[in-house]
Nucleic acid binder design. Structure first.
Ligand SMILES: [Mn+2]
Ligand SMILES: [Mn+2]
Ligand SMILES: [Mn+2]
Ligand SMILES: [Mn+2]
Lengths: 223, 223
DNA sequence: ATATTATTTTAGACAAATCTAAAAATAAAA
DNA sequence: TTTTATTTTTAGATTTGTCTAAAATAATAT
């Protein structure tokens, strides 16, 4: 059904993700950074993706993903996240262990396989990191979440996801028992460095701004 | 842990399988045929595999797989067959549908993943086609099976596997309800073309020699 | 507005895997 | 044992994805 190389798929996914943080078009160097490669290599690939009409690309003007490219990207992301659910829920991996494996599994081509996997997992709506799973047509329900760093003293919040997916960060959170579903309340916010003291089941932890920024939450009790 | 490309893995697997049908060393053209490529390409790859000490290769003398190469091949086969079990047992695919998907899944690198998958599947010893699944160390119990074509009139046999894995052949067997675990008895063997009449639960089917040759069985009741 | 700096693109090379066509070696036949 | 046929290897190209270094363009500072 699709005829894109694993590399093309990885580039498209990166471009899709960058499109969601960037207001204007995505520039070459940001793609290079996120793919751990050189700008020269990125330029080469951009030409190829443009040729296939997966992106709109103008020399020196950066790149915008097309509807067609977005659909491909969303399908990879769908596979990635469903496999992550499989790895945690069925094979009992920790949420900080699954990303690298899903990075490979997402390229397994069969759409029928992923359809059955989705049904077997009982149509999960979110992956272990709180990220929404696109359906077959590419639709995804984006839950309006906020950063814990913008929370208020005394308020209670439920963790819905993370803004940073590195294993280092996830392991750090795991040490405090912090992950999606857990409820925290802000005990105190330090004026000086915006770090905060949070309470989780009677235990208190000190979180730096760097950390609280990357914890996504919604108000406790909100839908 | 290992640093072999997907292509190298596929070549090694092919060489391993050919080694089990060939008494002497495996020759270039048979590898080319089984890989659907040219002899020239095979020669190139043989040099690379020899360089890595996965095979012993002498110009014009064919190739013998080394212990090291065998271990790599068996690990790929292990993954292939465990994924096939997953696809049939868990995701309810038919046994004639799973091969192509497993062909991709077998290259997913994590050994820990396959270890957990194996445990989740409750340590299956055979794949859906009756082929034995190597354990972590590469050991596999080869069940001494015979071809149905060498069976005797009146005798009862239990299907243990197939000698041909093409989807076409498997679909053909599926039409008669023939697959591993099913018991058949030979009602009659035609002198002329060695075709046979077999009985399966009161139904009778006519099997050509081409077909009966590729059905592997053991005597009914044998261990 | 011009100079300086940063970003992006091209040019040229390389490794991996493949191919076709030609040369070399081996096997089979006469 | 020659000759012929088959198999295997080499030579030379091609495609994909990558790299470094240099050239071109755009952004920023003076
Ligand atoms: Mn990937
Ligand atoms: Mn995730
Ligand atoms: Mn394969
Ligand atoms: Mn099989």
């Amino acid at each position: 059904m699709q005829q894109h190389t694993e590399t093309e798929e990885n580039y498209l996914k990166a471009i899709y993700h960058l499109s969601n943080v960037t207001i204007s078009s995505v520039n070459t160097s940001s793609i290079a950074t996120s793919m751990s490669t050189t700008s020269a290599s990125v330029t080469d690939m951009l030409k190829k993706l443009a040729e296939k009409e997966l992106i709109n690309y103008e020399k020196y003007k950066g790149v915008k993903i097309t509807r067609k490219g977005e659909k491909v990207a969303l399908n990879i992301i769908r596979k990635h996240r469903l496999w992550e659910v499989f790895l945690t829920k069925v094979l009992k991996f920790e949420w900080d262990e699954v990303h690298t494996m899903a990075e490979e599994l997402e390229h397994v081509s069969s759409d029928e396989l992923i359809k059955r996997l989705e049904a077997y997992l009982d149509f999960p709506k979110f992956d272990p990191h709180g990220d929404p799973i696109p359906d077959q047509s590419g639709k995804l329900e984006l839950n309006d979440q906020m950063s814990l760093s913008s929370g208020e003293t005394g308020a209670k919040y439920t963790i819905t996801g993370v803004g940073e997916h590195s294993s280092a960060f996830l392991k750090h959170l795991a040490k405090y028992g912090l992950k999606p579903g857990i409820t925290v309340s802000i005990a105190e916010i330090m004026e000086f460095d915006k770090s905060m003291l949070v309470k989780v089941n009677k235990e208190k932890f000190h979180l730096s701004l760097e950390v609280s920024k990357n914890i996504l939450v919604k108000k406790y009790g909100a839908i």
